[in-house]
Amino acid sequence: MPTTLRHFLLVACLMLPACSWLAPPPQVRGNKVDPEQLKELTPGTSTKADVTAVIGSPTATATFNDNKWLYITELTQPRIGRTLGVVDQNVVELTFDGKGVLQQISDRPAKDALPVSVIARTTPSPGTEASFLQQLLGNIGRFVPAGTGGASTTVGGGAPGAP
């Protein structure tokens, strides 16, 4: 390998980590719950009002159970093409009894997440299928020609509002 190429590769390898300061910092999304604040809550005595005062309102509640509050946090960082990559995620789950008293605090890390598959299809609705000719000729006469401004005239050709 020529000496200049070796020097170039060495300099490139040394410069590559220096580019990381150009990258935007990670962003916290959702409700990040501080572990120190969680220590202020006591299962069996803290109420929903206490929880809201200490750590704020939940990100979501369970679908069929209003007594299960979820605090969802995601740490994201922009990647190639401005897509967001998830660096870390966490869910804190608080369970209340029927009277609104805190019963349990659970921490759910990213490894507990389940994959969700999205189905990419549409629901057909009757009467909306247009033929090729309908699609081709459908917009004829719909638009006002440029320059006319869509001004209306009165019957008889007079100016609008004139007697």
Rank of each mutant, 00 (worst) to 15 (best):
A62K: 09
T59C: 02
T59Y: 09
G56H: 10
K39F: 07
L38H: 03
L38D: 02
N31T: 15
R82L: 10
T73S: 09
N65V: 09
P26Q: 12
V54Y: 08
G30R: 04
R82Q: 12
Q77C: 09
V33H: 02
T52S: 10
A53S: 14
T59F: 06
S46K: 02
G81F: 14
T73R: 05
A62Q: 13
D34S: 13
P35H: 04
Q77T: 11
L38V: 06
I72M: 03
D50W: 08
T61P: 00
Q27M: 07
T59P: 01
G56R: 06
I80Y: 14
P25C: 09
A60W: 09
T42D: 01
L84P: 08
A49N: 10
I72G: 01
T52Q: 08
A62N: 12
G56T: 10
G81E: 13
R29Q: 11
N67K: 14
T76L: 03
P25M: 11
T47H: 07
Y71H: 03
K32W: 13
L41S: 02
I80M: 15
K32I: 05
E36Q: 15
P43V: 03
R29V: 09
T73E: 01
T45A: 11
T52C: 05
A62V: 08
L38E: 00
K68W: 09
K39S: 05
Q77I: 07
T76Q: 06
V54S: 06
E74P: 04
D66G: 07
Q77G: 04
I55K: 01
K48P: 00
R29M: 04
A62H: 14
W69E: 00
K39L: 07
T45P: 01
K39C: 00
